[in-house]
C-alpha cells in the first residue's frame, strides 16, 4: 500500500532507504571533483604524472601548501589571497554603502529628477561586465588604474540589485518612525544612522555573504587588468600557474592553490548558511 496508517506519504520502508541512497549518491557526485583536487594537493608530483592518482590523501599536505603559500609559481599565493580579500571586501562594502545611501534618498526624499535617477540605476540591473569589457578596460586604463586594487573594485561596485533590496526593505518600515523622528527634530541623517541602519542589520549581513562570494569569485575583470603577477587574485591566478608550451604543470601546488581559492567562500556558505540562504532568496526577488 502506498499510504501508511500514520498518514505520511511513502516515508518509511524501502522507499525511504532508496531516497537516502540516492541522496548520498548525489552528494558523492557533487563532492567528488573537490575531493580529488584535495587528494592531488597532498601527494607528490610523480604520483600525479603517473596515473592513476591514489584515492586516499598522501602525506605531503604541509609541504605542498607551504610551497604554494610562500612561493607559488608566478607570485606567492599568500599575496594572491591578500589581493582577493581586498577585492572581495572592497566590492562588498562599496556596493552595500552606495546602495543603501541611494535607496535612502529614493525612498525618503521627494526631489526633482527622482524617477530619472531611479531608472538610471535600474537599467544597470543586468549589464554584466562581460558585455562591456573593452570600453570599461579603456576607462580604467585612462584613469591609470591598471594593476591597482581600486581598478579591481570600482567598476564592480554599482549594483541595482542591492539598491532594490534596500528600497524594498525601507518601504516595509512603518512610516510612523520617520514621522516621529521628524517631529522630535531629528534630521534625516540622524534618522538614517539611529533607526534605519540598525533595522537593516540582518539584511546587510545577508547581502554581505552573497556579495563577498560574488566579489571573491570574479574572474574576467582581474584577468584583464592585472598583468602584474603581484596583483593577481587567487581565482584568476590559478590558470596563470600553468606553463605555456610543453612544460609539465606543477600539479600539487596548483591543486593546493585551487583548494585555498575555494576555502573562504565555502567557509562563508557553510558557517553562515542561514544568512546565505536568506541573502540568495532575497537578492533574486
Amino acid at each position: 500500500m502506498a499510504v501508511q496508517k500514520s498518514g505520511m506519504v511513502e516515508k518509511r520502508g524501502i522507499g525511504l532507504w532508496l531516497t537516502h541512497a540516492g541522496l548520498i549518491f548525489g552528494i558523492l557526485l557533487v563532492c567528488f571533483p573537490i575531493y580529488i583536487a584535495f587528494v592531488a594537493s597532498t601527494v607528490t608530483q610523480p604520483e600525479i604524472v603517473h596515473p592513476p592518482l591514489p584515492l586516499i590523501p598522501g602525506d605531503k599536505f604541509f609541504e605542498n601548501y607551504w610551497d604554494a603559500l610562500s612561493s607559488g609559481v608566478n607570485a606567492p599565493v599568500w599575496l594572491m589571497l591578500f589581493n582577493s580579500t581586498i577585492m572581495a571586501l572592497g566590492i562588498t562594502v562599496g556596493k552595500i554603502a552606495i546602495s543603501i545611501l541611494s535607496a535612502f534618498a529614493i525612498v525618503y526624499f521627494r526631489f526633482p529628477g527622482r524617477m530619472v535617477f531611479f531608472w538610471l540605476i535600474f537599467m544597470t540591473l543586468m549589464l554584466p561586465v562581460e558585455v562591456r569589457i573593452v570600453p570599461t578596460y579603456q576607462v580604467i586604463a585612462d584613469f591609470g588604474m591598471l594593476n591597482s586594487h581600486a581598478g579591481l573594485i570600482l567598476p564592480l561596485i554599482a549594483s541595482a540589485t542591492a539598491t532594490f533590496l534596500f528600497r524594498q526593505l525601507f518601504l516595509t518600515i512603518p512610516e510612523e518612525l520617520a514621522e516621529a523622528a521628524r517631529i522630535d527634530g531629528a534630521g534625516p541623517m540622524r534618522f538614517f544612522i539611529d533607526i534605519l541602519l540598525p533595522m537593516s542589520r540582518t539584511n546587510i549581513a545577508a547581502l554581505f555573504v552573497i556579495l563577498f562570494i560574488y566579489g571573491w569569485n570574479q574572474y574576467l575583470w582581474p584577468l584583464l587588468i592585472t598583468t602584474d603577477p603581484d596583483m593577481n587574485t587567487i581565482v584568476m591566478g590559478i590558470k596563470q600557474m600553468f606553463p605555456s608550451g610543453d612544460d609539465i604543470a606543477d600539479w600539487p601546488v596548483i591543486m593546493a592553490t585551487a583548494i585555498l581559492a575555494m576555502l573562504p567562500p565555502v567557509a562563508v556558505v557553510i558557517f553562515m548558511q542561514k544568512l546565505f540562504v536568506r541573502g540568495l532568496v532575497e537578492s533574486e526577488k
Binding site: N217, Y219, V277
Partner: peptide, 11 residues
C-alpha cells in the same frame, strides 16, 4: 549539497 555554489566558475 549547497557549498559548490561558493566555488568560482574558474575554479
Amino acid at each position: 549539497l549547497i557549498w559548490p555554489y561558493a566555488v568560482a566558475p574558474a575554479v
